[in-house]
Write a protein that binds this DNA or RNA. Sequence first.
DNA 1: TGTCCACTGGAAGGGAGGGCTT
DNA 2: AAGCCCTCCCTTCCAGTGGACA
Length: 410
Amino acid sequence: MESIFDPYLTNRKIFTRNRQILQSSYIPDELPHRNEEIKQIASILATALHGDRPSNIMIFGKTGTGKTASVKFLGKELQRVDQKLQNVHFIYMNCEVVDTQYGVLQNIGNQIIADFEHRIPFTGWSTERVYNILMNKIDEMDKVFIIVLDEIDKLFYKSGDDVLYHLSKMNDDLIKSKLSLVGISNDLKFTEFMDPRVRSRLGEEKMVFPPYNAEQLRDILMQRANLAFEGGVVEDGVIPLCAALSAQEMGDARRALDMLRIAAELAERNSDEIVTEAHVMKAKNKIELDAISEAVRTLPTQSKLVLLSIILNDDKGNNHMTTCDVYSEYKQLADIIGFSTLTQRRITDLISELDMLGIIHARVKSFGRGGRTKEIELSVPKLETKQILEDDEDLRPLKYYRPVTQTTLI
DNA sequence: TGTCCACTGGAAGGGAGGGCTT
DNA sequence: AAGCCCTCCCTTCCAGTGGACA
């Protein structure tokens, strides 16, 4: 009997069993074009194997230049080599997720403390207490601790350099154990604002990962494609195209891999037998749109209201609006759906956040006697974004709302 | 040259919400 | 139960400011 699934069964497969190989989180056994960097970091970290403290390292480089992958790879290797001696304890943490003082200490603590009963609660204790427990625990274990703080700039901008200061100082107070820090950042400048003591401690060794060029991206994609795809399912031009498109985007390998994977998934879903350049172009669009809609969907309701105010202003033909324009529209919207109205000061912050997310473009501009304010423009597709906002439970009453347009009666 | 507009963005602090400790 | 702690979201207050205009 015919089944709706038939076409999916009879068609040639595109992916091998190892489709996760194309996820950017997958760490391959070999990282093409990062040998030098890896060797250099390895030579620093190797000290740990003999029980000595490696220098702290700061690693800089744009997104998708293999910083995280290289460090994680080294962590894996270090632990493998160290299996017998058990000298080293490797800890990895992403500071975009864990971005408070308390959070960082708690997270490190819980990666060290094995028994469930003695875990550190996610709130309730004083930071000092967590610090003390952590330090005692670390010292008692008599090992070399390598703590990786990925996206360390996020932590710094959010919570200042207190944690970094304490962590980098902890080593002085340890008797048996040793601790070294590896910071990863895609922002080269953030250390300028740090306490000079912290800066010099963290940056005992510095490294910069250059962006990949198109050729290198091609090698990276090839390596993964060979493992992830069945033979002959990928058209010749596909990989070079993914590489070229991503090379334009600052050599982001993560993006290149996503593009290839999504192109293949589109082909698969469409029951096409081979992955073509057309699939790649579709994938590129999909990635861009998905990123925007994800960002918009996950906005807090108040920010959604602000964004909707901006869209409505744009609808009125006011596509270079000021904070005041946005705020007055916002007040009306908040009123309609019965939300409390935030102050203009707060809205200024929400506007800046939207700007940072790339959803809008806001720059401070002076209009002379007209005052000094932000000039705001929408930088995402209007209709799609509006659609997403209107899908929000809380914003539904605004679906058929039309802003009052300034009409001049003659 | 000085004025003055309409904000900007820093600082401080309140209070709610999570949870631990005694 | 009362007294802590930490974070998040906001408010209040306010000094500071780029540049058109008088």
